[in-house]
Design a protein around this nucleic acid. Structure first.
Lengths: 215, 215
DNA sequence: CCTACCGATCGGTAGG
DNA sequence: CCTACCGATCGGTAGG
């Protein structure tokens, strides 16, 4: 029994270290890109050795893919899961917009949106890292589309061409990305409010006459 | 006189080499970032030695700043200058939107918009490179604002809050950035048409009743 | 046999 | 523009 406890204790400690590595890696990547996440940099930030970092991963690419998965979990907990607690329909669609802007304003990642920074970094580099980032983006856009479609079925969003789910998803996401750019590159504190205003106007324009936009 | 000719000949040859280096550097940076522009990489692509590249610049940072200036000239020739040939007012504002999307669709830079890629790369790294990229972005947004303001003064755009120049500039630019992301990361050929549709809808919404949107 | 590291060093390449 | 290099740091691995 004491042997089992020791093994479990070691495994738990190892998992905690791995999670700490991935949180640090995602934070660095948001500011300096996944290329900025070197074993030496991680080791320095975490106060352990390079080998101590590397022992948790099979390769640099494995570390990069695990960092993306960790950032997806962080994003889901900060944005997607809270938004899905809102009542279905236009309220839930607005909640997703609102949470995505809060995620930027709260600096969940120190360098802005992890997926924006790393997507821009890898969008022209074929390989598993780019594939994982493309998959994450498609899932994000698809979630937006789904919520628009749900709101249409619920009769809270019009069924005109300008309210087509793919088009609305594209435009709402575009506004959040521009907020990220202006906030990060221009240090513009008005960027997030500006995006919020535009999102609310877009939702108001596609809401059916008897549907009120939540605060 | 032959001495002068020789010097001039050398200078001209040197300038051509320098321009070729900067065009290549901007192309690489659009796809792999400015960090991907190493002296060895440039030398290999151009068929010269690393020292032959470095001879044209005082430092790596000097090369990066010269690459940004070169990309600005390319962007001005591809987007800004042609747009400014359109008649003032809403037509010129639309021309700027249209040219910015054409610039993406034509792959003027092989890795998508140079300023998007490098802006995302440097937005969290203080220094002269970030400052130059922030200045370029502010000038771009200001040009959009100016054209919206001109169209308002000409009576072709309403003066409501939703047509406020800074807000309109933010939204039109956001759509072009999202088109760049979906085109580059998702290989989505519909991204540019989708942005064009949204831009036209936005302009139609702020145009005064008697103003027609150019084709 | 296992894990979670350490200090040191491998072959290569970066900017200069 | 060339060859010939430097200090450092890269991803990755050795024995303890």
């Amino acid at each position: 029994m004491s042997g089992t406890l020791t093994v479990d204790g070691r495994r738990r400690r190892g998992d905690r270290t791995r999670e700490a590595i991935l949180r640090t890696a995602a934070a660095i990547a948001s500011a300096e890109g996944l290329d900025g996440v070197s074993l030496g940099r991680l080791a320095g930030d975490l106060g352990i050795s390079k080998a101590g970092v590397y022992a948790h991963f099979e390769s640099k690419e494995d570390l990069q893919l695990a960092t993306i998965a960790s950032a997806q979990a962080t994003f889901a907990a900060a944005v997607v899961e809270p938004a899905l607690e809102a009542p279905p329909g236009l309220a839930r669609l607005w909640a997703l917009c609102d949470r995505s802007l809060d995620y930027l304003a709260r600096d969940v990642f120190p360098g802005g949106c992890f997926f924006f920074s790393t997507g821009a970094e890898f969008d022209a580099r074929p390989g598993p890292v780019r594939d994982a980032l493309a998959l994450a983006r498609r899932a994000w856009i698809r979630l937006y589309e789904q919520l628009v479609d749900d709101a249409r079925r619920a009769g809270e969003v019009v069924t005109t061409a300008e309210a087509e789910p793919r088009q609305v998803a594209f435009e709402l996401d575009a506004l959040a990305m521009a907020a990220n750019v202006d906030r990060q590159l221009l240090d513009d504190a008005d960027a997030v409010p500006r995006a919020r205003r535009a999102m609310r106007a877009r939702l108001a324009a596609i809401a059916t006459p008897d549907t009120e936009l939540p605060a």
